[in-house]
Design a protein around this nucleic acid. Structure first.
Ligand SMILES: [Mn+2]
Ligand SMILES: [Mn+2]
Ligand SMILES: [Zn+2]
Ligand SMILES: [Zn+2]
Lengths: 145, 145
DNA sequence: ACAGTAAATGAGAATAAGTCTCATTTATTT
DNA sequence: AAATAAATGAGACTTATTCTCATTTACTGT
């Protein structure tokens, strides 16, 4: 995992530093979208708060980190590596878990057609979209029992 | 408009107070999703900051206010009255404008089918969804020229 | 209309996520 | 190994939102 992190950094010509490795490792290990709070507690103070935010910004700049706000207003980040393709998110309103969801290709095609229509109607240039689903994990989520 | 505001409040058995009327009037007059910042400037200090947030919470409690975060992290609110049906949002990454968008019925039907699948796959109970589109208004938006 | 009571308000203090500053440390290049 | 630019840590700062509490206001029953 340390090697994965080093590789990611060097492939993006970002200098290899301890805080960057630690943050990447934590993200890789968790493997799911994670709250900044959770991330901080996984790091157990090994990286200063200011540095954590700087590293997250660095990762955003090289386009391997995605950031969004969950319905309870916490900031969530996730790595987007090569294998990580276009997908959407499912939020548990109870425990706050965020789950990656891939929707069917037919659906994405239809959504793109809708987007075409919206572009024309509003004379917009739409560059991205997001589908979010909210609900309750019923029994299998890692936080709720 | 004052009468509309009074009516909305009494219909939801919320006591009719000046700050509540002022906030409702501003929202009704603007008629679109609005940033809390913009809302505050429309109110020109007529409502104390703490009261504004309280009133917005009151409106959320009676389920006539929707709140979400725009991609630039500002908080956006909108009234959801009877006529205001299910819809989604389009964000201009340049000027921050937020536009209501209604997608086709066929699309929503298909999305609901996708949601059915996700519910089963993840053993979730999905209660709501959101489609967000991001891009640039090309010429007609009220803020960019 | 009036008094009594609970609810709502205003002003400003408190909280907390995220940013910034600056002195020190570290990574990279030679 | 030295030189240099970049990155870091610690804590100050900013700013959106919440909280506190003394005062004001809206509703209820008379
Ligand atoms: Mn994801
Ligand atoms: Mn809307
Ligand atoms: Zn859950
Ligand atoms: Zn615009």
């Amino acid at each position: 995992m340390i090697e994965d992190s080093r590789k990611i950094l060097s492939e993006h010509s970002v200098s290899i530093t301890n805080p960057r490795i630690l943050v990447l490792e934590a993200l890789l290990e968790f493997g799911n979208p994670i709250t900044i709070d959770e991330l901080q507690s996984k790091l157990k103070g090994a990286v200063a708060k200011s540095t954590l935010y700087r590293v997250l910004n660095d990762l955003k700049k090289i386009k391997i980190l995605n950031e969004f706000t969950s319905p309870d207003n916490s900031t969530v980040v996730e790595l987007i590596l090569e294998d990580h393709s276009h997908h959407h998110h499912l939020f548990c309103s109870d425990c706050g878990e965020v789950i990656d969801v891939e929707l069917s290709e037919e659906f994405e095609i239809m959504l793109n057609k809708e987007i075409e229509k919206v572009q024309k109607n509003f004379n917009f240039e739409i560059t991205d979209h997001r589908v979010e689903m909210f609900g309750l994990c019923t029994d299998q989520c890692s936080n709720c029992k």
